[in-house]
Computed example of a mutant assay.
Amino acid sequence: MQLSPFHLAIPVHNLNECRNFYTNVLNLEEGRNSDYWVDYKFFGHQLVIHFKPKTKKDTHTSLVDGKDVPVPHFGVVLSWEAFHEFAELLKSKGIQFIIEPYIRFEGQVGEQATMFFKDPSGNAIEIKAFKDMSQLFAK
């Protein structure tokens, strides 16, 4: 089966603040937009931020490799080199990480680089990479 780009829509409670974050902090290319939503090219996929008034929501985490991983979250798998370049970009822009970039499951099946951070609306984002992409779904 051929892989196709995915489409993901997420809610944001401040469209202008999040538009600045995705455009100027993450350096994503903006596509179509309106007063209520903005499309982004998210590493070859389509990410859409949609305005939604702020509500109180519970924060939940799941323990993975000794770290509290935020649930829900979304993200992408990059090449090993692109992951490290992107991590340096985020550090240079002062991103506050939920989980700093590190190697998860080191020396085990599924070894991967990972990092977690939030956008201004609190959406958790995971960026990860595998030295060996054949390990992506390894058990």
Rank of each mutant, 00 (worst) to 15 (best):
A9H: 05
I10V: 12
H7N: 11
Q112L: 04
T61Y: 11
I99K: 03
A87W: 03
I127M: 12
I127V: 15
D35R: 15
D65V: 01
F116T: 06
G107Y: 11
K139F: 05
D119V: 11
E126R: 04
R19S: 15
D65R: 06
I49M: 14
P72W: 04
Q135T: 01
N24V: 01
N123Y: 12
H45T: 06
A9Y: 00
Q135K: 05
P120S: 10
H73G: 09
F51Y: 12
L89F: 07
F97Q: 08
V71P: 02
F97T: 08
M115I: 03
N27Q: 15
G44E: 04
V12H: 11
P11Y: 04
C18E: 14
F137V: 06
E126A: 04
F21L: 12
E85P: 00
M133C: 02
F74L: 04
T55S: 07
L47D: 12
I10T: 06
V109T: 14
G75Y: 10
I125E: 10
F116G: 08
H50M: 11
G94K: 14
K131P: 00
L63K: 14
T114Y: 00
I125P: 09
F74V: 04
Q108W: 03
V77R: 10
D58C: 01
S92E: 15
A113H: 02
V109C: 07
F6K: 13
I99V: 13
A82L: 08
P70L: 07
C18L: 13
G31T: 09
C18P: 10
K54H: 05
L26N: 11
K57N: 09
Q96M: 13
E106I: 01
S62K: 14
V71F: 04
A9F: 01
P5S: 13
F21H: 13
P11Q: 05
L15F: 07
Y40G: 11
I125M: 10
S34P: 07
K139N: 11
D58P: 02
I125F: 12
E81G: 00
K56T: 11
I99Y: 04
V69F: 05
S92C: 07
V25K: 15
R104G: 08
H73W: 08
Q96S: 15
